[in-house]
Lab assay of single mutants.
Amino acid sequence: RKEMTAACTPRRRIINLTSVLSLQEEINEQGHEVLREMLHNHSFVGCVNPQWALAQHQTKLYLLNTTKLSEELFYQILIYDFANFGVLRLSEPAPLFDLAMLALDSPESGWTEEDGPKEGLAEYIVEFLKKKAEMLADYFSLEIDEEGNLIGLPLLIDNYVPPLEGLPIFILRLATEVNWDEEKECFESLSKECAMFYSIRKQYISEESTLSGQQSEVPGSIPNSWKWTVEHIVYKALRSHILPPKHFTEDGNILQLANLPDLYKVFERC
């Protein structure tokens, strides 16, 4: 597991931080080997919608929660590849102030007048994250320049770009939802926020969305749709870069829909 690298990086740093090793061990302890084997050997059937997909393993048909699986995938990559990410360069710098204002204007932020003026909160978020810029760049390849612009994001899987519609809320939550006081809790909560931002979430995906850094293989055609990215990038990574937690067998994120021999018997009677 320590050699797990989802995106190509030129050289690998050895990380011996106790906090990170502890988080890696927790993933191992909570892992479910049968689910790992199923995901490793599954045959992708198709997307139901951005949140759900169908896959077959041996004779069984499964309904998989793409949102939760991708979130767990990105969390584990962030923990196992800690401080070893490439950088996704933004085509132009994104001012943190503008991103924070967009987030505060969104109902998702939960902002009320009692929280104070949005401009003041946005300025605080910019200054707060600028103070964390060195650590964010060093460990997470999340790059913020001296003017308070976001200029780079971590490359977690080759050819995958997170849904940038979720970027404003991500920046807001970096400042408000991460435990910045304790090292282990900081790395864990920061990785979880980043994983949620990178995950496939239906509120940020339309039929026209593209999450891939590449064009489709047909010359002159439109960019790959999110469905292509889910199948050929995300579920491909799920084959080798995730140890599913045991609770996925109990919380409805992986559901067995049918045993195909039983279905064949039904059709034979028709």
Score class of each variant (00 low, 15 high):
Leu23Val: 03
Leu54Val: 15
Arg269Thr: 11
Phe140Arg: 01
Glu108Trp: 07
Leu129Ala: 01
Leu164Trp: 12
Tyr62Ala: 01
Lys118Ser: 07
Ala175Gln: 05
Glu127Tyr: 08
Ala83Ile: 00
Glu188Lys: 10
Ile15Asp: 04
Phe267Gly: 15
Pro244Met: 01
Ser91Arg: 12
Ile200Leu: 08
Phe85Gly: 00
Glu183Phe: 00
Gly166Ile: 01
Val126Leu: 09
Tyr264Gly: 15
Lys236Met: 06
Ser109Thr: 13
Leu121Lys: 15
Glu33Cys: 12
Gln58Gly: 09
Gln76Phe: 00
Ile157Gln: 03
Glu165Gly: 12
Gln51Pro: 02
Phe187Val: 07
Val20Lys: 02
Ala237Gly: 06
Gln76Asn: 00
Ile254Leu: 04
Phe128Ser: 06
Pro107Lys: 09
Thr229Trp: 03
Cys270Thr: 15
Glu33Thr: 12
Leu96Asp: 00
Cys8Arg: 09
Asn224His: 15
Gln76His: 01
His42Val: 15
Gly152Leu: 00
Pro93Gly: 06
Val48Pro: 11
Thr67Trp: 03
Thr18Tyr: 07
Gly166Leu: 02
Leu39His: 02
Gly148Lys: 05
Asp115His: 08
Leu153Arg: 00
Glu119Trp: 09
Glu177Ser: 06
Phe44Thr: 02
Ser206Gln: 15
Tyr204His: 07
Leu255Trp: 05
Tyr124Leu: 10
Cys194Pro: 00
Leu153Glu: 01
Thr67Glu: 09
Tyr235Gln: 00
Cys186Phe: 05
Arg173Ala: 05
Phe140Asp: 01
Phe97Lys: 08
Leu172Val: 10
Pro154Ser: 02
Glu146Cys: 07
Lys192Thr: 07
Thr229Gln: 07
Met101Tyr: 15
His42Cys: 13
Lys236Asp: 09
Ser22Val: 15
Phe170Asn: 00
Trp226Pro: 02
Phe128Arg: 07
Arg12Gly: 12
Ala237Phe: 06
Leu64Met: 08
Tyr160Asp: 01
Glu72Gly: 03
Pro107Asn: 12
Gly116Met: 09
Lys60Cys: 13
Arg11Asn: 08
Leu243Ser: 10
Phe85Thr: 09
Leu167His: 01
Ile205Asn: 04
Pro244Phe: 01
Ser22Gln: 10
Phe128Tyr: 09
His40Glu: 15
Ala175Asn: 04
Leu96His: 00
Leu260Met: 12
Ser216Cys: 10
Glu182Lys: 11
Leu156Asp: 02
Glu217Ser: 07
Arg13Ser: 09
Phe197Leu: 11
Val45Cys: 10
Leu174Gln: 00
Thr59Ile: 04
Tyr198Met: 04
Tyr235Cys: 03
Ala55Gln: 02
Val20Asn: 03
Leu21Pro: 00
Gln51Met: 15
Tyr62Cys: 04
Leu156Arg: 01
Asp145Val: 03
Val34Tyr: 11
Glu29Asp: 13
Lys184Asn: 04
Ile222Lys: 13
Lys130Leu: 09
Phe197Ile: 00
Tyr160Phe: 08
Ser240Phe: 10
Asn49Gly: 11
Val48His: 03
Leu63Pro: 01
Asn149Lys: 07
Ile14Glu: 14
Ile171Met: 11
Ser212Ala: 10
Val48Asp: 01
Ile14Trp: 11
Lys246His: 14
Asn16Gly: 08
Trp52Arg: 02
Glu147Lys: 11
Asp158Met: 13
Asn84Ser: 05
His57Ala: 15
Pro223Val: 10
Thr18Pro: 07
Thr176Glu: 10
Pro93Trp: 02
Leu102Thr: 14
Leu174Tyr: 02
Arg1Asp: 13
Leu39Met: 07
Met4Thr: 07
Thr229Arg: 15
Met135Val: 06
Gln214Val: 13
Lys246Tyr: 11
Ile77Met: 04
Leu88Phe: 10
Gln24Val: 06
Tyr264Thr: 15
Pro168Cys: 04
Ala122Val: 10
Asp262Ala: 06
Trp226Ala: 01
Met4Gly: 05
Gly120Arg: 10
Ala55Ser: 12
Lys2Tyr: 10
Ser191Cys: 10
Leu150Val: 11
Tyr75Ala: 03
Thr229Pro: 03
Ala7Cys: 13
Asp262Glu: 11
Ile205Gly: 03
Leu255Val: 10
Phe170Ile: 00
Lys2Val: 13
Gly220Met: 10
Asn65Glu: 04
Glu268Ser: 07
Asp145Gly: 05
Leu238Thr: 04
Cys186Asn: 04
Arg12Glu: 13
Met4Phe: 11
Phe140Glu: 00
Ile200His: 03
Cys8Gly: 13
Leu260Ala: 12
Arg11Cys: 07
Leu174Trp: 01
Asp262Lys: 08
Ile151Met: 13
Met38Phe: 06
Leu155Ile: 14
Ala83Glu: 03
Ser22Ala: 07
Gln58Asp: 12
Ala100Met: 09
Glu250Met: 06
Pro163Thr: 05
Glu127Gly: 09
Pro50Gln: 10
Arg12Ser: 14
His40Lys: 10
Lys132His: 08
Ser22Phe: 15
Ser91Ala: 15
Val48Leu: 08
Leu142Thr: 05
Trp52Met: 08
Glu29Lys: 10
Trp226Tyr: 05
Glu134Pro: 10
Glu177Pro: 00
Asn149Gly: 07
Tyr80Ile: 09
Glu127Asp: 10
Leu255Arg: 14
Lys184Val: 07
Asn28Phe: 13
Phe197Ser: 00
Ala103Asn: 00
Thr210Gly: 08
Val218Trp: 09
Leu172Cys: 07
Glu127Arg: 12
Glu250Asp: 14
Ser221Gln: 09
Pro162Val: 00
Ser212Thr: 13
Gly31Asp: 13
Phe197Asn: 01
Leu211Cys: 11
Thr66Cys: 00
Lys184Cys: 07
Gln76Arg: 02
Leu255Ser: 07
His32Tyr: 10
Leu96Glu: 00
Leu61Met: 06
Ser43Phe: 12
Met135Tyr: 04
Ile151Ser: 11
Val218Pro: 15
Ile125Asp: 01
Leu102Asn: 11
Ser91Phe: 12
Asp145Asn: 11
Thr249Met: 13
Glu33Lys: 08
Val218Ile: 11
Gly166Cys: 03
Gln214Cys: 10
Leu172Trp: 10
Asp158Gly: 10
Tyr204Arg: 03
Ser43Gln: 13
Leu88Ala: 10
Val20Trp: 03
Glu123Cys: 11
Ile233Met: 06
Pro261Ile: 06
Leu243Gly: 03
Pro107Met: 13
Ser22Trp: 10
Glu123Trp: 06
Lys192Met: 09
Thr59Leu: 13
Asn253His: 15
Leu190Phe: 14
Arg12Cys: 14
Gly46Val: 05
Glu217Ile: 11
Leu243Asp: 11
Val48Gly: 02
Pro154Ala: 03
Ile200Cys: 06
Asp105Tyr: 07
Trp52Asp: 00
Asn259Pro: 06
Ile157Phe: 02
Gly120Met: 09
Glu71Met: 06
Ser19Val: 03
Val20Phe: 03
Pro261Cys: 08
Ser19Thr: 08
Leu99Gly: 03
His32Arg: 06
Thr59Phe: 10
Leu104Tyr: 13
Ile144Leu: 10
Lys192Asn: 05
Gly166Glu: 03
Ala6Pro: 05
Glu146Thr: 08
Met135Leu: 06
Phe267Ile: 15
Asn179Tyr: 07
Tyr264Met: 13
Glu26Asn: 14
Phe44Ala: 00
Asn149Trp: 09
Lys132Met: 04
Ser189Cys: 11
Gly120Leu: 09
Asn41Lys: 14
Trp226Glu: 00
Asn149Ala: 11
Asn41Val: 08
Arg13Tyr: 07
Val87Tyr: 12
Asp98Pro: 11
Gly110Met: 14
Asn65Asp: 15
Leu61Asp: 03
